[in-house]
Every structure is written in structure tokens, then in C-alpha cells.
Design a binder for these strands. Structure first.
Lengths: 215, 215
DNA sequence: ATCACGAATATCGTTGACAACTTTCAGTCC
DNA sequence: GGACTGAAAGTTGTCAACGATATTCGTGAT
């Protein structure tokens, strides 16, 4: 009665904590994740850790070798490129959908983000810019109403979060990609599905090019 | 040393059995899957059943409500359409990739499948036709070498297996879709990525149309 | 008759212990 | 010294029992 602890749901919580820990690079790629250790560190039972690891394995953030435990999955540049290639297909799909069925509210949100992105670019505030980009993706995704595509995109984003994050802070990257984002927004605001598709592909093609040049 | 029993791996096995049972409609959509029952039926511990259910939930075959158990996920027509929409993007991607990097061996396999599909169509052997189509997809996917897209496609196929299966047996469906499959094969054999992309989209657009007409 | 309440049941979530598997390392033989 | 053997340690996989949560059903009051 004192604290209502609405569905503490230990394992779901643990999944979240572990995911963040991996994405924040607290665990290095290829590092082994030993159930007993995690159990102690997070104060949960080994069974809860186990289900959390199962979840993360299915999200593609870790690898689980039978009888040999789990380790953080290392994403190579080639894999990162593959992920963006798939994102290009899926994001262009949701961009089309959103352009087709844009509501007035979503349009208003997009116009606001448009201004914010331009401001952040001019001010050179990379953190703010990165944050707004994520918000933009989220708005476009949700507005599409395409649950299937959204689910897969979320999974892909989780997998390549670190790569994605690093890219934002490459010198000159923001001033290059901001116009691309604005182009996507404008195409959607114009309710032009083909233009939205094209602008999205152009933007992600740019990301692929940068990824390839990285290594 | 008598029997080497290479890694019996109860839970992995159970995952497989349960997946097949769901896809074969032994469990109806929305049917509750009670851990204790499954445990008895398959002669495994409840913990093993539990991890199997976790796996299937992450594959999207079942839903798990906190503290309320698991049930077979019912895929609505709208969801089935969404799945095919995503497949259209991903399969056209792998078709392009395969057309670009086709090996002589894969080309031979494709030519053989081409003949088999035409034969099955003429003989009206729907089961054989359905089987060959699955083989065809598998060959095109694997030849693409695009692990990321393949992984997502496998997940989607598992989810919509039943819908997909039913479609094959609609009257006249085979004679309509066989030429579409042949067109895909020919485009890939011609090493023409854009044609392969187009043929794939045409084929899946046909499936979407049939799905929509279903209900 | 209907609704609210609470006990009883059904089922899931968690725990600790045990079994099986893998890896490591010391000892032995060549 | 190097390769093989086998024991020991480390780790995961499985199990049965316990505790927590949701659902059902009966009872009584309005």
C-alpha cells in the first residue's frame, strides 16, 4: 500500500538498463556478459538477467553462443552499411506513407522541427542537432502508422546506435546533412510521396558514403 | 561415446517445435499458451518452455502480456498487408543485390527452379509450386549475401506464414503468379538489377491486391 | 436482479540448487 | 620441450518449489 510499485517487472527493466549500458559503451564490443556478474551488479536474479539477455539477443545487440554465454555484438562497418541500406528502404516507405496521410498536427510539429534544425545548424550545436534528428525520425515514423516498419526500424536503430552517434560529430557533417533533413520535411509538408521517398534516399545515401569513407 | 547427442539444447528444440505447431495452426490465433500445459505436453521443464515462449515473442509469433501469459498472435489482414509492403522493399533490395553479384552456380540453380516452377504450374501441382517458390526466395536471399535484410525477411516470413500459405491455394493463383516469378528469375539471370527490382515489386503488389480482396 | 466485495483458483515471475557443458591448467608421457 | 590426458574451475542450461499477480466465482447487500 505504501508504494504501489506498479508491475515492477524486473526483467523488462533489466533489459532496458542493459541496453543503455551497451549503447553507452559501458560494455565494450566482444566483451563477455556473464550472467552471475550481471546478476550481482544489477541486484537481480540470474533468471531475470537471462531473460534480459534473451531479449537483447533477439534485438541483435548481443550474441549468445550455446553453452558459451553472451557477448556484446561488434558491428563492423560492412554491417553498418547493410543496416543503413535496409533503413533506406524502410524509411523511404514510411516517408511516403507519412506524406500521404499527414495530419495538421503532425505538419505543425514538422514545421517546428524544421526551424529547430536550422537553428541548431547555424549555432553549431551538435548535441541539439543530433537530438532533433532523432525526434524528426520519430515523428515521421509515428505519423506513418506503419507498425511493422516502425518495429523493424527501432530494432535497426538500437543495433547501430553507436555508429550513428559517432557520425553526428564528424566535422562538417551537420551543415551537410541539415539541408537533406529540411528537404525531407519540405517534401512531406508538400504531401509529395515521391519527393519524400527521394529526399530520404538521398540523405541515407550520404550516410552510407560517410560510413564507407570511415574505413 | 555411444550416442554423441550433440547439444540436445531442449529450449532451442522447443522453440522450433512450438513455432511449427503455431504455423501449422495446431494452436489457433488468440489461443492462450499456458506454460504448465506446454511443459507437460512436450515433456520439458517450465523454464525451457518459458525461454521458448520468449524467443517466439521476439519473433512476433506470440504476444506476452505481463503476468497474463502468452497467446498466439492473430495477424489481421491489415497487418499482413503491412508485412508484404515491407517485404516489397526488402525483397527488391536483395533481388538487386543478387542480380549484381550472381555466381555461375546460383545462376544454374535459378535456371533449374525456373523449369520446375513452369512444370508445376502446368501440372497444377500447387503443393510442389508452393515449395518451389519458397526455395526460390531462399536462393535469391542467400545469393544476395545481405545478412541484415535476410534476417528481417525470415522474421517476417515466420509471422505471415499462414496467410502466405493460404494464398497459394486460391484458385487460379498459381497460373497468375508463376509468370511473375519467372520474370524475377529472368531479370536476375540477365544481371539487370533494376529489372529484378521492378519484377519483384510487381509480384508483391499482386499479393497485396489479393490480400486486400480477401476481406 | 445487480453490483460490490472477497476468498479461491489459476497462472506467471522469481529464487536457489543442481546438472551439463566448456575452458583452463597442471601433470605425464614421448 | 611439446602434445596428450584428466582433473578442477568457471559458466550456462535445467529443474522443482515458492511467492506474486491476475482472474474467477460465490456470497451478501442494496
Amino acid at each position: 500500500m505504501t508504494t504501489i510499485e506498479q508491475g515492477a517487472d524486473v526483467s523488462a527493466d533489466l533489459t532496458h538498463q542493459l541496453r543503455e549500458a551497451i549503447q553507452d559503451a559501458e560494455f565494450a564490443p566482444h566483451q563477455r556478459l556473464i550472467e552471475a556478474d550481471l546478476s550481482e551488479r544489477f541486484g537481480a536474479s540470474r533468471a531475470s538477467v537471462r531473460t534480459a539477455l534473451l531479449n537483447l539477443a533477439n534485438e541483435g545487440l548481443i550474441e549468445r553462443l550455446p553453452n558459451r554465454g553472451a557477448r556484446v555484438r561488434a558491428i563492423t562497418v560492412a554491417e553498418a552499411v547493410e543496416i543503413v541500406e535496409v533503413r533506406m528502404e524502410l524509411e523511404s516507405l514510411v516517408a511516403r506513407k507519412t506524406a500521404q496521410s499527414l495530419t495538421a498536427e503532425d505538419a505543425a510539429v514538422l514545421r517546428e522541427l524544421r526551424g529547430g534544425i536550422l537553428d541548431a545548424m547555424h549555432e553549431g550545436s551538435l548535441i541539439q542537432y543530433s537530438r532533433l534528428n532523432q525526434q524528426l525520425d520519430r515523428v515521421i515514423w509515428d505519423a506513418s502508422g506503419h507498425a511493422t516498419a516502425i518495429g523493424l526500424l527501432e530494432r535497426l536503430r538500437a543495433q547501430s546506435a553507436r555508429h550513428q552517434f559517432r557520425l553526428s560529430f564528424l566535422p562538417g557533417r551537420a551543415t551537410l546533412s541539415a539541408p537533406e533533413h529540411v528537404a525531407i520535411i519540405d517534401a512531406i509538408l508538400a504531401r509529395d510521396p515521391e519527393a519524400a521517398d527521394h529526399a530520404t534516399r538521398v540523405h541515407l545515401a550520404g550516410i552510407i558514403a560517410v560510413l564507407r569513407s570511415q574505413e
